[in-house]
Lab assay of single mutants.
Amino acid sequence: MKVIFLKDVKGKGKKGEIKNVPDGYARNFLFKKGLAIEATPANLKELE
């Protein structure tokens, strides 16, 4: 799953980066803790 990092996550990504991460990791950790959001076309446009 492609995500946009909202905060730095040690060993995974830095704020503003767009990366592919495992689906479970994104849903169960990154999204729940507010560390990242899904890289949807709308979210990507908002980032620019």
Rank of each mutant, 00 (worst) to 15 (best):
A36H: 01
L30R: 00
L47R: 09
Y25H: 04
N28Q: 10
K10P: 15
N28D: 15
V21Y: 06
L44M: 11
L35P: 00
G11Q: 05
N43I: 13
K19W: 08
D8I: 02
G16M: 06
M1N: 03
G11T: 06
K15M: 10
M1A: 05
G24P: 09
L44F: 07
K14F: 12
K14H: 10
I18G: 01
G16L: 05
T40E: 05
G34M: 11
K12T: 14
L35T: 01
D8W: 06
K10S: 10
K45W: 09
P41A: 13
A26H: 04
N43E: 06
P41K: 10
I18N: 02
D8G: 05
I18R: 02
Y25A: 04
T40Q: 04
R27P: 04
A36T: 00
R27Y: 13
G16P: 01
E46W: 15
E17I: 03
P22Q: 09
L47G: 06
I4F: 06
G34P: 00
Y25G: 03
K15L: 07
E17Q: 10
F5E: 00
V9W: 05
K15T: 09
P22D: 11
P22L: 08
M1Y: 06
N28P: 00
A26G: 04
G34L: 08
I4L: 10
G11K: 05
G34D: 05
K45Y: 09
K45N: 11
V3T: 01
V3N: 00
N20V: 15
F5G: 00
K14G: 06
G13A: 13
N20H: 14
T40G: 05
M1G: 03
K32V: 14
K15N: 03
L30I: 01
L6A: 02
D23P: 13
I4H: 02
A36N: 00
K7T: 11
F31P: 03
I18T: 06
G24R: 11
L44A: 06
K10D: 10
M1H: 05
K14W: 09
L35K: 03
L35W: 11
E48M: 14
I4W: 03
K19P: 00
F5W: 02
V3K: 00
E38R: 09
V9S: 02
T40Y: 06
F29N: 08
L35Y: 12
A42V: 10
V3A: 01
K12S: 14
K10W: 14
K14I: 09
K33W: 15
Y25P: 05
E17F: 03
L47A: 09
D23R: 13
P41G: 08
E38G: 04
D23E: 15
K2R: 14
D8H: 07
Y25K: 05
V21H: 01
K33Y: 15
K14L: 11
G24L: 13
K19V: 14
G13F: 13
L47D: 05
I37D: 02
F31T: 04
A39T: 02
A39I: 05
K32R: 12
E38D: 04
K33S: 11
L44P: 04
Y25W: 11
V21N: 00
K7E: 11
N43Q: 09
E38M: 09
K19G: 08
G16A: 03
G11D: 07
K33I: 09
K32G: 07
F29D: 11
G16S: 04
K7W: 10
K45H: 11
K32S: 10
D8N: 10
L30K: 00
L47V: 11
M1W: 05
V9T: 04
A42R: 12
L35Q: 03
V9G: 01
D23H: 12
G16Y: 08
L47K: 08
P41I: 12
A26W: 09
G11A: 06
Y25R: 07
N43V: 11
G16F: 08
T40W: 04
A36D: 00
K19T: 07
G24W: 15
L30G: 01
